[in-house]
Design a binder for these strands. Structure first.
Lengths: 308, 308
DNA sequence: CCCATACTATACCTTAAAGGTATTGTTGCA
DNA sequence: TGCAACAATACCTTTAAGGTATAGTATGGG
């Protein structure tokens, strides 16, 4: 498959007419027909109903069209962004993060960073904690916000804070009746949903070992790929799930109860290359410090709107 | 630009070596070098620092690499999805929605729909309200959830409910001191942020005409493209913003106050093609009805967790 | 410091595939 | 039913991707 074929198909889908589509693409009609045939052949799927005037898209064609438009838009954005970084010689700061920090202080930090260093192009990449280590080494990212402690000598890590864990519970179930802290033991026998499924080790293992250390055995453990799915399943009463406090913002159709155990915490960890003495890294550390100073509540135990 | 060039560049970036990258791509090394040169030429940007062994990526190269990987992943997903729909002859149901419904009942509806009609492939497309009308006519979507009343004879629309509007206020400002309903008049003289900027007419006009009809004049109106930006600016104390109640879930670092006016509501409107008597459309209507029945609070005036 | 080594770039040729022209089917409407 | 509009097929031309041979350039050991 080829961007050209996608563009050709998009033109046909828009015009609902091969001849006019070919004109708009500045090519002759037969090559256009052939490219669409090749595309359909590669996919093994008919995209266009030709025995109808004007032509119609099949269901597969409609889907392909929408997706293709999005991909093409994305490619254009990518071109622009690459040119901007390359031409202006702007420094690029690449930040890796785990999804949960998006619901915490990361957006605020990024906004502050843009204000304090407008010359910087900021790239945000969602990466799981352990993916951040190789990404840092390979220079794909410059800083990482993760949740897993590690001890690679080439990577410097700082615990920004320990965040309370909360249990996500389906509305209307007995456990969700109270707002009081939930004893860890209450999780025993419950159906537990953990994430992410892979790559291991991950936050899932952190949760599971927390329970294991307390000798609490959940009734059944279901692994899912991401927190969104996990909370969706909780809402669908498929089980309960343990998430960092900040991720509570993701859904309000489930109930949350802080877990009543001093060990039920998850760190937020800033990582960067050990040798990295860049100005921007220092700026980030300063800004994070400021954020905590501005909002000391974020450091409080029962943090309602927690931080990075 | 071409997916092939993106794949080639990705291989070089991964291997950090043209020769080995060429091997992994099963082509000779010189053509690979040339394709990368062509890519750099088209972008007008150097992506690779060659006077270094192993080679390094420039900042632009790093950015391009990450984006390219995401695009390539996206293309693969698209192929799979298209094949699945085309092969299994699954019916595709394409749903257009405005962003705010994502923070309301839409996810619940989609989940119910998947459960009740597992044979269905569901495509979700974010479209502004007025974009949904042509999208319905052209068959790009089958149903739309929007916020703008319209009167196209070919499109049937149903108001699902009227949702209360709330003002988003920066924390710590005088207006944010209370949780009580906010009189519409309090918005007079305030800096107001509205969205989306285009295409018009949009929800922005709904908000502006609400104020105009009440003869209230905001101090200054700033138009932004999307709600996320608008709320970000509110958090940065750039002004206040009027949003549908359900969108409160998007951020918790701003304060919300229900607007104290019976006219300060925004409808949630279900639209579909006038002739459409498909089974799945009926199912959607039934499911929505069920949702409201299950959760009558959604219909209450001061809806905290509102619906579609 | 220079040469050996391990690369990447250049030059030039071969081949595959995209695009064009002419023409033959189809569809749908008058 | 026949004509107008349009897509598919057949076949040729041109463009550009890929291959081979070789020259140029960056690190590392002697």
């Amino acid at each position: 498959m080829d961007l050209r074929q996608m563009r050709y198909f998009a033109a046909v889908a828009r015009e609902r007419n091969f001849t006019r589509a070919a004109e708009s693409l500045h090519i002759a009609q037969p090559p256009l027909s052939r490219q669409i045939q090749l595309l359909e052949e590669e996919l093994g799927v008919t995209l266009i109903v030709r025995k109808s005037r004007p032509i119609r898209l099949t269901d597969a064609g409609r889907l392909f069209y929408e997706q293709a438009m999005q991909v093409l838009g994305r490619v254009d954005q990518m071109k622009d962004a690459t040119r901007r970084v390359g031409m202006n010689r702007n420094r690029l700061l690449s930040i890796g993060f785990v999804a949960s920090t998006l619901y915490g202080g990361l957006p605020v930090l990024v906004r502050k960073l843009r204000r304090h260093a407008p010359e910087l192009d900021i790239q945000l990449l969602e990466l799981l904690s352990i993916q951040q280590i190789p990404a840092l080494k390979e220079g794909r990212i410059d800083v990482g916000f993760g949740r897993l402690k590690q001890s690679d000598p080439n990577i410097a890590s700082t615990v920004l804070r320990e965040e309370r864990l909360v249990a996500a519970l389906p509305e209307g179930t007995p456990l969700a009746a109270s707002d009081a802290p939930l004893p860890l033991s209450a999780i025993g026998g419950q159906k537990l949903i953990v994430y992410p499924k892979e790559p291991r080790p991950s936050y899932a293992d952190q949760v599971l070992s927390l329970l294991q250390d307390a000798e609490i055995h959940p009734g059944d453990v279901l692994e899912v790929r991401e927190i969104q799915t996990a909370l969706g399943l909780v809402a669908a009463e498929s089980g309960i799930c343990i998430i960092p406090s900040s991720a509570r913002q993701m859904r309000s159709d489930v109930r949350y109860r802080v877990i009543d155990s001093p060990r039920a915490v998850s760190p937020v960890i800033l990582s960067h290359r050990a040798g990295d003495g860049s100005h921007h890294l220092g700026l980030i550390k300063t800004l994070i410090h400021d954020m905590y100073a501005e909002n000391p509540a974020w450091l409080a135990a029962n943090n309602l709107r927690p931080p990075l």
